[in-house]
């Protein structure tokens, strides 16, 4: 059998908030065009782990990562890496929708203008594609000039997804993307993710175990900063090897 090719390979990743260590020797390999769910009780380090992939943690003083994270074979923790390009290739969706204070159109056009040399026509096409890709086009095509902050919560989150995919990333990181969204909005986002997996490698942090089991191909269980178990989602939820995993997925703690 041929050796599997991974999109992201994390090796011995340790993470520190000042003196406090939050991640311990994380090893995790993530396959391309799959949805990988990261689960675990609150404070277990799952968001922290995710925030290393686009180095967004560097915004905050005192946070640092040690180890190696390869994306397409290149270590992104290397200080020589082009951060702007990295963040274009690795899009991120946050817990709360964060539309920029601009129109729906400009929200999506913004990263295109930032990263590409494009004519007005090309931008308009791409914005439409991204909004279609985020299953939002039909709902907003008549209000492209209205403020992105005037949309409903679920729509705002899909707008953020459209904004992320407009930059043509390869990877989408989602940090509890539906925890602030109502059930109908959540359902739409989950359906959307199922379609997005054809084009992107998706890593999603979630509190919601049903969500993880519904949508993901692979699941990683984090506990106290360490990765306890990784495997095909079905296996993790039906027949975990580890006792802690079993307790968690069966709702005995967490």
């Amino acid at each position: 059998m041929q050796k599997k090719k991974y999109k992201i390979e994390t090796k011995r990743l340790n993470f520190f908030y000042g003196d406090h260590q939050a991640l311990f020797d994380n090893d995790l390999s993530i396959e391309a065009n799959k949805i990988t769910a990261v689960i675990g009780p609150s404070g277990c380090g799952k968001s922290t782990h995710l925030r290393v992939y686009n180095r967004i943690f560097e915004l905050h003083r005192g946070q640092r990562a040690e180890g190696e994270v390869f994306i397409d074979g290149k270590d992104i923790l290397d200080p020589g890496i082009d951060l702007l390009d990295l963040r274009r290739r690795v899009g991120m969706i946050f817990q709360k929708p964060t539309p920029f204070p601009m129109s729906v159109f400009d929200n999506v056009a913004y990263p295109i203008r930032l990263h590409f040399k494009a004519s007005q026509k090309e931008i308009a096409e791409r914005v439409e594609n991204a909004l279609r890709g985020a299953a939002l086009w039909d709902e907003v095509k008549d209000k492209l000039r209205e403020s992105g902050q005037a949309l409903s919560g679920g729509q705002q989150q899909r707008l953020c997804i459209a904004r992320a995919i407009a930059a043509e990333p390869e990877i989408l990181l989602m940090d509890e993307p539906t925890s602030a969204i109502d059930p109908v909005g959540t359902l739409k986002i989950e359906e959307l993710m199922d379609r997005l997996r054809e084009r992107f490698t998706i890593v999603i942090v979630t509190h919601n175990m049903q969500q993880a089991s519904r949508i993901s191909d692979t699941t990683a269980f984090f506990y106290k900063g360490s990765i306890v178990e990784v495997g095909p989602t079905k296996l993790i939820f039906t027949n975990p090897r580890n006792k802690q995993t079993e307790d968690y997925v069966s709702g005995r703690f967490g």
């Binding site: 702007l84 991120m92 964060t98 920029f100 930032l114 953020c160």
Partner: peptide, 29 residues
Amino acid sequence: TPVALVESAMGVGCTRWEATWDVVVRSRK
């Protein structure tokens, strides 16, 4: 300014200045 807004601006690949001028300043107008 909400931290999440700055993070998401940086998350789409803004420089610090772009995040400040294009997003933070608009939101704090």
